[in-house]
């Protein structure tokens, strides 16, 4: 029984070499932080506590969704630099919609329908923003870095123009429930993220589109000669990225009850960091949702743990960077000193 389990886990590690180290890292981080927190707080604060998990659960969803949005594009050997500015544009548009029609709807008792419509509209808008990226990349053949760099500036500019630089705040109570409400202690937002992650994992591993996406990421020419419709896969990828951004935008708007043009701009690079830490190859073709989720949880543990230790959030930022370099150094060491590499067959 135990042997089977060990063998299975070894096989998993071999198949998933790029994220095999993450479970150990996760356990290590949790242990280290738990002990450190117990000692420094003299047993008054616990890392492994309901409160702390609650705090972590509140922050994971939006960063997780944004990281997924980044990851899908990286799998195609692309990148989406416009995720944050798209999220803000969508957030601001939804906020303005609700503020404009909110009072009228409230008096007519139609607040809930308005919110549903806003959410649907927001998601659609988000997909459209992704589609625009996709069109630039697939049809005009602009490299993804440049195309999404351009739209990043453009979308942020539009948001600034719409808001005139102000913060839009004061969302209806009913809308705030998305971030604050829960079922059996599990926040709605976390459920949204979990469902999104599971669906994404299935789409990537088990849908034809997912396989095509990976293959195209490794060699676009060969994929196109295999009758894969490259343009369509790229368009779908960036629309999917847009959809995930839309979900993140809804959760962010609900959590802060406000939106502005420059919300969370520092998260952009963090999403790249999470994807790469989770084993996504920035050159395309490799990376899994499970790895990304583990990387996300590790990062969140470090953030919350250091917060409990009373350490500046800026030091956390530095530690994230150091962690990434550490993992890359480890992978580069493994690549240069392979233990038991599978033998190649020459016929």
């Amino acid at each position: 029984m135990l042997n089977n389990l060990l063998a299975a886990s070894r096989a998993w590690g071999k198949r998933n070499a790029e994220m095999a180290a993450l479970p150990f890292l996760l356990v290590g981080v949790v242990l280290l932080l738990s002990v450190a927190i117990e000692i420094t707080s003299e047993g008054n604060v616990h890392f492994l506590s309901v409160e702390n998990f609650g705090a972590m659960a509140a922050q994971i969803p939006e960063l997780g969704l944004l990281s997924l949005a980044m990851m899908v594009t990286m799998l195609t050997a692309g990148i989406n630099l416009s995720i944050i500015s798209s999220a803000n544009l969508v957030g601001v548009t939804m906020a303005i919609t609700m503020l404009t029609f909110g009072p009228g709807a409230a008096s007519a008792g139609l607040t809930l329908p308005l919110i549903v419509l806003t959410i649907v509209g927001g998601l659609l808008f988000s997909v459209l923003l992704g589609l625009f990226n996709g069109l630039l990349i697939a049809k005009l053949k602009i490299t993804p870095v440049l195309a999404t760099l351009g739209t990043m500036i453009l979308y942020e500019g539009l948001t600034l123009a719409i808001t005139k630089g102000y913060v839009i705040s004061g969302m209806p109570e009913e809308f705030l429930v998305i971030a604050s409400g829960d079922v059996f202690g599990v926040p709605y937002a976390l459920i949204v993220f979990t469902v999104a992650a599971v669906v994404m994992a299935y789409v990537l591993q088990r849908r034809p589109f997912g396989r095509q996406l990976y293959m195209l990421g490794s060699n676009q020419t060969a994929a196109s000669f295999s009758a894969v419709n490259i343009d369509r896969v790229i368009l779908k990828t960036y629309m999917l990225s847009g959809l995930l951004v839309g979900l993140a935008a809804i959760i962010m708007l609900s959590r802060f009850s406000s939106a502005n043009a420059r919300q969370g701009t520092s998260l952009l690079l963090v999403t790249v960091l999470i994807a790469v830490l989770g084993g996504t190859d920035p050159d395309g073709g490799f990376g899994k949702v499970l790895g990304l989720v583990m990387a996300l949880v590790i990062m969140q543990c470090i953030t919350s743990g250091l917060n409990l230790l009373g350490i500046s959030s800026f030091l956390t930022l530095g530690l994230w960077g150091a962690l990434l370099i550490g993992v890359i150094a480890y992978r580069s060491y493994r690549a240069k000193n392979p233990g038991n590499r599978p033998k190649s067959v020459s016929a």
């Binding site: 790249v272 960091l273 990434l324 890359i328």
Partner: peptide
């Protein structure tokens, strides 16, 4: 580390600025 420059410099951006 023969790693993609964008990843290393994103990491360093966080390290330099965070510290």
């Amino acid at each position: 580390l023969s790693a993609p420059p964008i990843i290393i410099t994103i990491a360093n951006l966080n390290i330099f600025f965070g510290l």
